[in-house]
Design a protein around this nucleic acid. Structure first.
Length: 154
DNA sequence: GCCAACGTTGGC
DNA sequence: GCCAACGTTGGC
């Protein structure tokens, strides 16, 4: 049984279009430095699907779908002193942070704006729209997943 | 660019 | 273990 997720990225840093342009339309989802989000990453499995959310931009919202295509593994950027995600407390023997590989699946014809997501009472429990929520990786229930797909594809 | 809401750090 | 200070997130 595969799970559903929502993953946030600032399009100026890494957009869905960027992912699609990568070799095999696949890249590593690195740089998660929040324990709650880290724990969600660690429970991901290949075949899980995730909404790709564009944050901190002109029209924040869900822009498409990606697939988790690896098991979780330790985040190499945490070991790299040159990386902005470097964390000396994370070591290969005792890694603190994790990544998964993600693969482009589809881009919506139109972005589904945060404003519309907020206006649908059927998905009011999404962590995304809870007051003060800043989680960058969060679970989505199957019902919420279907509801959002319906909204996006009208 | 502003700023509210969070999470983390570190002194005590 | 408390909590003030600080840095970050992210909508607006």
């Amino acid at each position: 049984m595969n799970a559903f997720w929502l993953m946030k990225s600032e399009p100026s840093a890494f957009s869905l279009t960027d992912l699609k342009a990568r070799k095999h339309a696949t890249d590593m989802w690195d740089g998660v430095r929040n324990y709650q989000a880290r724990n969600f990453i660690r429970s991901m499995k290949p075949g899980d699907l995730a909404f790709f959310y564009h944050s901190n931009c002109e029209i924040p919202g869900i822009i498409g779908v990606i697939e988790i295509t690896s098991m979780p593994y330790s985040d190499p950027t945490a070991f790299d002193p040159q990386s902005k995600y470097y964390d000396p407390k994370s070591t290969p023997d005792n890694p603190r942070w994790f990544v998964v590989d993600v693969t482009f699946k589809k881009v919506f014809k139109n972005i589904l704006p945060l404003k519309e997501i907020k206006s649908n009472p059927k998905i009011k429990d999404l962590p995304l729209i809870q007051k003060g929520s800043r989680l960058s990786v969060m679970p989505v229930t199957p019902k919420e997943w279907q509801q959002i797909l319906n909204m996006a594809e009208i």
